[in-house]
């Protein structure tokens, strides 16, 4: 058992599952938006706004945003723990990695809150 306190779910399995589920949600979302845009070639602002301010669409967008946040957290965490390590860049790696990881977590949370704010402001 290797402990890790900066990964999203702490458990490898839950991170793994989240990574898959969030990927599916984002794919669905992208296909839905692309589909909607192709099916409505003469889309006007009012219709677009009506769509995005409806509760189901807001929920769907929120799920997509949370998925993006979780997906990037897990992904970036993997990248940092692969490459920003004592093995690869020397003893200062631990500090640098903690800095990157906390920075990444902060940025992810900020963007998520900001995105929710935008969503509910439509």
């Amino acid at each position: 058992m290797v402990t890790s306190i900066t990964s999203l779910g702490r458990s490898g399995l839950s991170d793994w599952l989240l990574q898959r589920v969030s990927a599916c949600v984002m794919t669905l979302y992208v296909f839905f938006i692309l589909g909607y845009l192709t099916l409505n070639p003469n889309l006007q602002f009012a219709q677009w706004q009506a769509l995005n301010s409806s509760l189901p669409m807001r929920m769907f967008s929120l799920m997509a945003i949370l998925s993006l946040a979780a997906h990037s957290w897990i992904g970036m965490w993997c990248v940092f723990t692969d490459y920003v390590t004592v093995r690869l860049i020397g003893p200062k790696a631990t500090l640098v990695r903690i800095f990157f990881q906390l920075g990444m977590i902060a940025v992810t949370l900020l963007y998520t809150i900001w995105a929710i704010d935008i969503l509910w402001g439509i």
Binding site: M1, V2, S4, R10, S11, G12, W77
Partner: peptide, 11 residues
Amino acid sequence: AKLDDPFSVFR
């Protein structure tokens, strides 16, 4: 139980 962390298997 010993394998369910983000490194052992899931790397």
